[in-house]
Structure formats: structure tokens, C-alpha cells
Design a protein around this nucleic acid. Structure first.
Lengths: 341, 341
DNA sequence: CTGAAAGCGCTTACAG
DNA sequence: CTGAAAGCGCTTACAG
């Protein structure tokens, strides 16, 4: 069963393709009778315009590309959902690719999406990405792109992130409010901007509360798995048996710390309070449940999509493109691991 | 900066578009010199064929659609990864949509994908889907479709699932092997095929081990959240204080049961052994860690994609389409919640 | 070995 | 009010 084309309708009605097209598109220079008969027949034959032909004609695909470091991940999969939902509402479809934190793959996938002629691209930088030529290439082609979560100052485009420094500040401030004074920070790698900003927030909270900074309380985790958290908590506790708080770069690292404390009879939160980052599902599953910082993941996806589609529209209208840097609010979620002593 | 077209190359070289096209596509009826100069220039100008024009010409988009009930879900997000990886390897891109377990949405999205002219569709049925006309419509248009995870006998297309009955059988058999005799089954809804099959597996395991069936040990959960598991475990324990095993329809339900037992001083696994289903991340996070049935999620995505792309190729070659029903192997993963007493 | 022509399915400026 | 023609960027059967 072949697809119905304008030509088929035209032939049946004995009129030209032009007129059929106009009738369907609501041009008013079409006789009322003609219009009606075209529309009826189109309906009966269940005519659907060939999107592929429209794509070619209109120079747009109504498709956006999304490159994400990791799909099987509570935060990112929630971002994906936000993107898809928002895009669908605005009439766009989404092609998703996973960079696996690899610079090479990210670059290759960016090219695939451009070849595919997507109307715009959404991207969270891979950890492995250290140069940005592939992104500059996109900007030169004037293809709209919006970065989110992991971004870089070296790329001038719209961006959606959270305020990592402030979020960390609030987390540590919360620990201090609970009475903590010797707070260990299990931080991420030095070269990761997000990790650096959270570290700055940690510093600021100490400063604002007149707690002197002790750099031996800061540990750089070389992995974000639960076991990494266990290992670093063990190390920290050995070196600082009087520690009374932990601010971990992720919930998994925090969960690892709690596992270590649980196993060694160190009471959480009585002896050591623990707070993580992300509000991932495990926070309410472990015992004690884990306080954390909630990142608005779906909103991040929605917001980034919104900016992208807006930019696509501006480019299309040939008006100057506005760039935005949006920082979404976070909030501390208090659970058992930092409840009042 | 406009995109380079064949026409541009032709003009610069003073030859026809036809010859440029042929040179690039390796036709041998092109002068060696001409070929070389075309290829060089194309490279220098970084020529990329316009995919949109090719789509129209070739009547294919090298794109497949994926409709999934829920994106933020460990099992499904892992399926997504499998699909995307496999598709990318085979030169296809993937458009993802979320049906939110809704029949209506699933139908609408199916139409969107068809309008989009995807080459094929991958779909896990929504819980809300009770009739299959929208799927029959797809089959009539001869658009390749492969169902996975949640499938229906009423739709004749290739399918990829696990053998739920066998998987459940093995789980319950494992409990029996650990010495359990009064095994509670927290099952899913009566009208859900997967739930029904697992229930059948439960029955069969009892039968094969000469344990008489007691239908008061079977509870139909009206939800799969942890709290649902807690509530039903409480109910079961109240009615059967001598119960010694639980086989739950999902890991979350099982985790809820464990939470209830933990809180009430009922030893797991000593007094009651518990096994879940899916091998989701929480299984190794809770205490005691949860035994479960591992479902091959990425493999399911890969396998379904593979079948789909194969079918697309067959349709294209006009050879008769073969339909497959693949059942992927599962395996029992033993953790603390069912360790030897 | 080269290229004019037709065609994929649509849109739209233009002539009548 | 209608429709022939040109065009989006490509491919390919065909003539020379």
C-alpha cells in the first residue's frame, strides 16, 4: 500500500497539484468548493504530507540532537525525560546519543547530528573533553547549541547549570548549623569545574562561619562509586578520628561513607553527619537515609530545550541571537543522616 | 556560511553535477583525473551530502523510533542504551519517546514516528494499552516493528522478552533450595501478562518440589513502590507468622518487604528469605543485600534493534520477512537476603 | 567519458 | 480562481 501523495489527490479530482497543496494549506485563493472536496478526499485517503520532502524544502527537520555522557544514570535519564517532554510539546523530536564521557565519541556524534541536519543540539560535556574545537566548528556553522550541566567558559553559547558553589555552600552551612565543626570534604578531581565550584562553596561556608580551613580534611576522590566513598571515609576517619561531618561530591560517595561508618559502629548522624549531592534514589533507601542537595534535573532538560528552540526560532527569523546563562536553584533535602543531634 | 552542494563543486570545476555525483560515489565511468579533482575539492570544501535530499530520494531515513513506558527507570534506561549503541554501530540514529504507560500517548507517538518516516519502530507496550489497533495500523503500512519486554500475542511481529515463567521458577526454586516451605508471593496485577507468567513460575516451582499450593500466600500488589512492598509484607506476616520466604514481583517490592522485616526484628534471611526481580541498583545497596533475578536489559535493547534492522533490510530487498520470538536468558543472583541459613 | 533530463514530494512566486 | 514552472539537493537511466 503506497503512501498517498498530493499528486494522487490531484489526479482523482482532476485538478493540479498546486491547487491541492494550496487548499490543504488554507490559502484563500482557492474556490470554496474545490477546497472542501480536496480536504474531504485528503481525509478519506488519510493523506499525510511527506515529512522528508518538507524537510528538504523548508531546510529544517524539527529534530534536535541530545548528547549525554551516560544514559543509565538517575540524573541524566531524568534530564532526558525533561528534554523529550519539552521538545514534544513544541513539536520537536529528539535523537539521543551517549558520549560515554569520551572526547572522541562526543566529537564524532556531534558530526553525525550535523550530517543528520538536526535543527539544534543539546550537550552535556563529557569528562574526557578537554578541547573545544568540535564545538567551535558547530558555532561557525551557525547551528544552535545549548550546553547544560557540564559546560565550559571557552564556548560561547547558551548554558543551563546549577550554581554549584552556592549549592555546596548551603550543604556545608547546613552541616555547620547541625553543630559540625570538623567537616571532611570528599571532593571530585581538580580539573573538573563542577568539583572545583563545590569545593569553593565548602570554603566559603567555613569562612562565613569562622571555621578555620584545614586542607588535610579535603580528599580528592578518584572515583564516584560507593566503594570509593568507603575507602576515602576510612582514610579520613583514620587521620581525623574527631571528624564530625562529611560533605561528599555525590550521593554514592556519601553512601559509601555511611556504609563505612555503619560497619565500624560510628553513629550517623550523632557522631558524624553526612550530606551528599544530587538527590538520587538511593538517598531514601539506605539507612540512615541520606541528606543531600537536590538538583532540578527535569527542569534542566526542559530549560535547555526551551532555550534551544527559542534560538532556532531566532535564527530562522534572522533576528540577532540572544545567549543566556541560566542557573537553576537547588535545595538542601534533610534526611536522617543530618537530623538534629 | 552556506553548506557546500554538488552544484558548487560542479561550478568551480566547470563540470556537471552529474559527474560530480558519480565521481564521489565511485562510479567507474568517470575519468581518473576528473575523479581525483572532484574528490580533492570535496574534501577541501568539507562537502557533506545533504541527508535530507538523500532521505527523499532513497525513501529511507536511517532513523528508528523507540517508544518506552518510562525513561527514568533503571531497566528501561539500560534498554535505551542497548538500542542506541546497537543502532549507532549499524548506522542508525534513534528517536526516543515516552508513553508514560498511557495507551493514548503510545498511539499518538506511534503516529508521530510514522509521520516522521522512521525506517522502523521499537516498542515496549504501555501498561495502559489494552487494544492493539494502532499497532495493526503500523503493520498494514508495512512499517517494521519489534516489540520487547511488554508484548502481546495479538500483534504478529518480532518480539524480544525474557522467559518470565522460567525466571520466576528459578527464583522460587532457589528459595526452596534454601529451605523455604511457606513462600509468600507478592505478585503483580491479574491482567498483566508478565505478572501472570511469573505467578505460573511460582506455581510450577511449588509443584515440582511437592509443596502444596496455598492461595492465601499470594498477594496482589496494587503498586510497585517500596511502601507497597512494606504494606503487603506486613499484611502477609500478620496472616502467616510462620512464613519463611518471599518472592516479590520487583526489587522495590522486595526491598519494602525487607524494610518491614528489619524494622520488626524479623531476621532476613534467617527467619524469612527474600528474593526480588530485575537486579536493579538498589539490590546491592540495601541491608541485607537483595537476591534477585537478573534481566538482560542492554542485551534486550540490542537484540530488538538487531531484529528490527534486519527486518528493515529484508523489506528493502523485497524478500519475505521472517518474524522471530526471542527469549533472553535470565539468572538468579544470590545475595545476603537468601544466603544459606 | 560526460551531461541533460527526469524524478523523489512538496511549496510558492508568477502568469493568466 | 487555477496551474505551469522552478526549485529544495541529490541520483541514475539514458543519449551522445
Amino acid at each position: 500500500m503506497k503512501e498517498v501523495r498530493l499528486k494522487d489527490i490531484a489526479q482523482i479530482l482532476g485538478i493540479s497539484v498546486t491547487t491541492v497543496s494550496k487548499a490543504l494549506k488554507g490559502y484563500k485563493d482557492v474556490n470554496e468548493e474545490t477546497r472542501k472536496s480536496v480536504i474531504m478526499l485528503a481525509e478519506n485517503l488519510n493523506y499525510k504530507p511527506n515529512t522528508t520532502a518538507l524537510n528538504l524544502k523548508n531546510r529544517e527537520t524539527r529534530t534536535i540532537g541530545l548528547i549525554i555522557p551516560k544514559i543509565v544514570h538517575p540524573f541524566f535519564s531524568s534530564v532526558i525525560q525533561g528534554v523529550i517532554d519539552e521538545a514534544e510539546e513544541k513539536g520537536y523530536l529528539v535523537i539521543i546519543l551517549q558520549s560515554n564521557e569520551s572526547h572522541e565519541l562526543e566529537k564524532k556524534q556531534l558530526e553525525m547530528l550535523i550530517d543528520k541536519r538536526v535543527d539544534g543540539i543539546l550537550l552535556a560535556l563529557a569528562d574526557g573533553t578537554i578541547t573545544y574545537d568540535h564545538l567551535h566548528a558547530v558555532m561557525e556553522k551557525e547551528i544552535p547549541i545549548v550546553l547544560f550541566d557540564k559546560v565550559s567558559d571557552d564556548v560561547s553559547c547558551s548554558k543551563v547549570t546549577i550554581d554549584n558553589k552556592r549549592a555546596a555552600y548551603e550543604a556545608v552551612n547546613h552541616l555547620i548549623g547541625m553543630g559540625c565543626r570538623k567537616i571532611v570534604h570528599l571532593r571530585g578531581p581538580m580539573n573538573a569545574p563542577n568539583a572545583e565550584e563545590r569545593y569553593q562553596g565548602y570554603l566559603l561556608a567555613l569562612l562565613n562561619n569562622d571555621i578555620s580551613y584545614d586542607d588535610s580534611l579535603v580528599y580528592e576522590c578518584n572515583g564516584y562509586r560507593i566503594e570509593d566513598g568507603e575507602a576515602f571515609a576510612a582514610k579520613a576517619f583514620e587521620q581525623h578520628p574527631n571528624m564530625d561531618g562529611v560533605f561528599a561530591i555525590t550521593d554514592h560517595v556519601a553512601a559509601g561513607a555511611i556504609a563505612f561508618f555503619n560497619r565500624n559502629g560510628i553513629k550517623v548522624p550523632e557522631q558524624v553527619a553526612v550530606i551528599g549531592f544530587s538527590n538520587s534514589p538511593l538517598t531514601s533507601i539506605i539507612t540512615p537515609s541520606l541528606s543531600t542537595v537536590e538538583q532540578p534535573s527535569q527542569e534542566m532538560g526542559r530549560e535547555a530545550t526551551d532555550l534551544l528552540i527559542e534560538e532556532i526560532a531566532q535564527r530562522k527569523r534572522q533576528v540577532p541571537v540572544e545567549l543566556f546563562q541560566i542557573q537553576l536553584p537547588t535545595k538542601v533535602v534533610v534526611r536522617e543522616s543530618t537530623k538534629k543531634k
